[in-house]
Design a protein around this nucleic acid. Structure first.
Lengths: 334, 334
DNA sequence: CTGTTAGCGCCTTCAG
DNA sequence: CTGAAGGCGCTAACAG
């Protein structure tokens, strides 16, 4: 494997000059530049990134920490991250934690070991205090999740108002008894979606019935079980709002399982807009998160933070929108 | 950021000793070892991987080149790769090409730049000759795809015999007119699945009708269109075998769209067994690839190749199995 | 068991 | 515009 000095010798110049043409830092005569380039090509020279990284004390790599890469929601976010990373010559290291907090911390440690220049957390199982502490020391951006009132770079949507919009939609279709399946309530975005649901009800003068609220854990099966509890009610809801698409799918399964129709008998709304939402029958009406854009934006902020660690930390809120498909049908007539 | 020499000074030893306790190479007295460890903890020392990498001329990183990370098939493979990588202290760099051949080559180049120690190709858009040439120079393993008769490390399933099994199953249910939707025929695994279908027909003494074979491109919409062509036939098939689950989903949509039932009127089989296969209605009977295991196995082979580049290259064929769900129903009575 | 020393390959002042 | 030289932080001989 040819190295810089080989190129230098062949071109009859010094390593400094080779380094200069590599960096494209203009101060090389056209003539020598050509000589060097010819030599590089002849030797099939590739600069050794290991050496460059050590010298510059940067790795040109960022870590994306996610709970589970086989969850389709995250892969779209990653694609956004990757796109911006590539444009700026950064690589992305995959930090799949398998939902393990220890693994999360280990990946973050990569920065201290200089194997990465920054981290994106698309999960935040670690305690908020810890994350804040880490964010003081290293470039870190949190995506999708957030920490309340924290002085920290974050990119999310507004989970409260988007949930409220769902209630608006359901009410406009004539529903007055709306069930809600929340995500795990120890997660802030789950609480936000619940909050939006509750304030949506209030806005329309509907009373809140705690039996209509069930806690799930974002899986299809928890959606199925929660929906069953809702269907067991003396007076079941005419619509169910699930806090993510997987749970909405479980809900649809539960409803069909009892011989009811969606949306004929009961309307269903999801959240996230993953691909399955378009494939399931009926196609799911859901809150579409700008996943790709979240990824892009997160990476852009991280890049700024890496270049200038004293950049003011900000919480960016991206717009989402309700996608109306088939699972809510048309206005109820009762 | 504390470095090794700081630890050495604080512990009153030389850097070599610190390096030794870090490497755990036994030849340090218990006493000094403790001193060093205390110093490391006190300074909150983390070894600089950049320096270590340069010194050892390795990056402890491998690149996984995939066409599209938001395709759920690949993420399961990646999880398998990641698991083994983690066990061996390797990191995985994501090489999402977005189906671009140039990007594929660029990611492979990372090895020559020593930013990675090996590559896993879960796609192979690049020409076989080029791949073989590259594999001579760097540790490279191909997963899911393969190159015929090549002296190259590959991990796949047997696409021919598994497709034949699908035909066996369909025939056992009474089907004699079986449609086939292939993947793009410039891809070898598509041709293999077609080959299995054809030889399956022959095995059961069924004649091959070329109008029953349609070429798709692995997307839902191509499945939909191909299925429509099949349904337009004067004598449509009683069963359709699609070469992947996405196309099978498109097929089911097309069939339902015409007012027919699956499996009541027409049976459908897919290939891959991605998550959607269990969610779609009817749940899809499909060939289940051991995706996670493919990932694990591929990474293990790559590891061997990295440690010993002269390892004999081998083509590992992993077992798959047919998962029978609802989309084929029960034996036909005609 | 421990210390000394010479690089890994590159970038970047500082001179010229 | 070009060259010489000093590290980046660590590991691996080689001595002792």
């Amino acid at each position: 494997m040819a190295k810089m000095i080989d190129v230098a010798k062949l071109a009859g110049v010094s390593v400094a000059t080779v380094s200069r043409v590599l960096a494209g830092s203009g101060k090389v005569s056209k003539n020598t530049k050509e000589k060097v380039e010819r030599a590089m090509k002849e030797l099939n020279y590739k600069p050794n990134k290991l050496a460059r990284n050590l010298r510059k004390l940067e790795s040109k790599t960022i870590v994306v920490v996610i709970p589970d890469i086989s969850n389709p929601f995250f892969t779209d976010v990653i694609r956004g991250i990757q796109q911006v990373a590539q444009q700026h010559d950064y690589y992305v290291l995959l930090g799949d934690t398998g939902n393990d907090v220890k693994a999360e911390l280990d990946f973050i440690d990569l920065i201290k070991e200089r194997a990465a220049d920054g981290v994106i957390l698309v999960t935040a199982r670690t305690s908020p205090e810890k994350i804040l502490e880490i964010a003081q020391e290293v470039p870190l951006v949190v995506a999708c999740e957030y920490i309340k009132g924290a002085h920290l770079s974050m990119v999310t949507i507004d989970n409260v108002s988007s949930s409220q919009k769902v209630v608006d939609h359901l009410v406009s279709l004539g529903h007055r008894r709306i069930g809600f399946i929340s995500g795990p309530l120890n997660v802030i975005i789950s609480r936000d979606r619940l909050k939006g649901y509750v304030s949506g009800l209030k806005k329309h003068g509907l009373e809140q019935d705690s039996s209509l609220i069930q806690e799930g854990d974002f899986t299809i099966s928890s959606g199925f079980e929660s929906a069953n509890r809702l269907l067991d009610l003396a007076e079941p809801p005419t619509a169910v709002f699930a806090s993510n698409d997987e749970m909405a799918i479980g809900t649809i399964k539960a409803i069909k399982n009892r011989g009811f129709q969606v949306p004929g008998d009961i309307a269903v709304v999801g959240f996230d807009d993953i691909q399955i939402a378009t494939v399931i029958e009926p196609a799911l009406t859901t809150v579409s998160q700008p996943k790709f854009e979240i990824g892009r934006c997160t990476m852009e902020i991280l890049l700024e933070l890496i270049q200038n660690p004293s950049t003011r930390q900000e919480h960016v809120v991206l717009p989402e929108h309700l996608v109306i498909r088939e699972s809510c049908g048309y206005p109820l007539v009762r």
